[in-house]
């Protein structure tokens, strides 16, 4: 009996979710860095009341309430914020908590999280649709910026590179196939030398030497945590690489480089410039969201 009452309560919650008009006017919680950036790019940043710990751009989000790491969401904390809409990256979890949120009638809209310019466009359109807005303008602008780089980068000689997520756990944790880092390296005129496995794995010293990357790419905060370029290059498995001899360690903001949000095209250009310092690349227009 009581249980049935609870079910009706959740069904009433579901009707709230479908009230798009209310969502369009209401308060947002965004989970996922690219999702947050996209909401700002669509001009709706002021409606965000809370973000997850991977949302760090634009910098004013640091003043908002923090819902924690996106893989360890809190159902009641999110409900307690009483948002009119939660925009949640598909990366988020655990799945049990998402299922609790849906059962409680929380207004949740999932946003796909993949790499590549088509995925960027899909992401922007998904967020816009959930907000009852037209997302084509932003999506098309990012796509146009990205496409302007296609021909110049294709003409460059690819640099062999390895992306290191962190060196904190002993062996460097490097990006293999099917990672955002792999996709961005490729887009920026590099060749990921680690393609024998998918995901992020520790790299053995022998394999590092055999792969002989010419450049090492890292997120700038991971580079700082590791103690800077000199410290990274002194790691035995990396010291023998051509990258170490040329002292080529590239650091770039992680959310910028790997988020595949509205800043993806600019990130592609910046990474390509760092990988190919002598190449001439076209400038990109300054956008409202970069």
């Amino acid at each position: 009996m009581i249980r049935r009452r609870m079910l009706t309560a959740s069904l009433m919650g579901l009707t709230v979710q479908s009230e798009r008009a209310r969502a369009a006017a209401g308060r947002l919680v965004t989970i996922g860095g690219a999702v947050t950036e996209t909401v700002f790019a669509l001009g709706q940043g002021d409606r965000i009341i809370a973000v997850d710990s991977t949302s760090r751009f634009p910098t004013k989000v640091s003043a908002l309430a923090q819902v924690g790491y996106l893989r360890a969401l809190a159902p009641e904390g999110l409900m307690g914020l009483a948002p009119d809409l939660m925009l949640v990256s598909e990366e988020a979890g655990p799945p049990q908590v998402l299922s609790v949120l849906r059962a409680a009638g929380a207004p949740v809209a999932m946003v796909p999280d993949e790499a590549g310019i088509e995925a960027v466009s899909r992401k922007i359109r998904a967020v816009a649709q959930a907000l009852n807005l037209e997302g084509a303008a932003v999506a098309d602008a990012v796509t146009a910026d990205w496409r302007r780089l296609d021909a110049p980068i294709a003409s460059l000689q690819p640099v062999s590179a390895v992306f290191i997520l962190s060196v904190a756990r002993g062996a460097p944790l490097v990006a293999g196939r099917d990672t955002h880092a792999d996709a961005m390296l490729l887009a920026a005129g590099a060749r990921n030398t680690v393609r024998s496995f998918a995901g992020y794995r520790p790299l053995s010293a022998e394999l590092a030497a055999a792969l002989a990357p010419e450049a090492i790419v890292m997120m700038d905060h991971a580079l700082a945590e590791a103690g800077g370029a000199a410290a990274v290059l002194s790691i035995p498995s990396l010291a023998v690489t051509p990258a170490a001899r040329a002292r080529r360690v590239i650091g770039l903001d992680g959310a910028y480089m790997l988020g595949f949000g509205p800043r993806a095209a600019h990130a592609r250009r910046d990474l390509a410039r760092l990988l190919h310092p002598n190449a001439v690349l076209p400038g990109l227009p300054s956008r409202g969201w970069t």
């Binding site: 009996m1 009452r5 309560a9 959740s10 009433m12 919650g13 609790v100 009638g105």
Partner: peptide, 28 residues
């Protein structure tokens, strides 16, 4: 929410309260 469990209709402004207590907190 208590009145709702006992049979009273749920005022729409308390739909979220009912969901928080009934769907999130109680099973937890």
């Amino acid at each position: 929410v208590l009145a709702h469990w006992l049979g009273a209709p749920l005022p729409p402004e308390h739909a979220r309260d009912a969901a928080v207590i009934g769907v999130i907190r109680a099973p937890r």
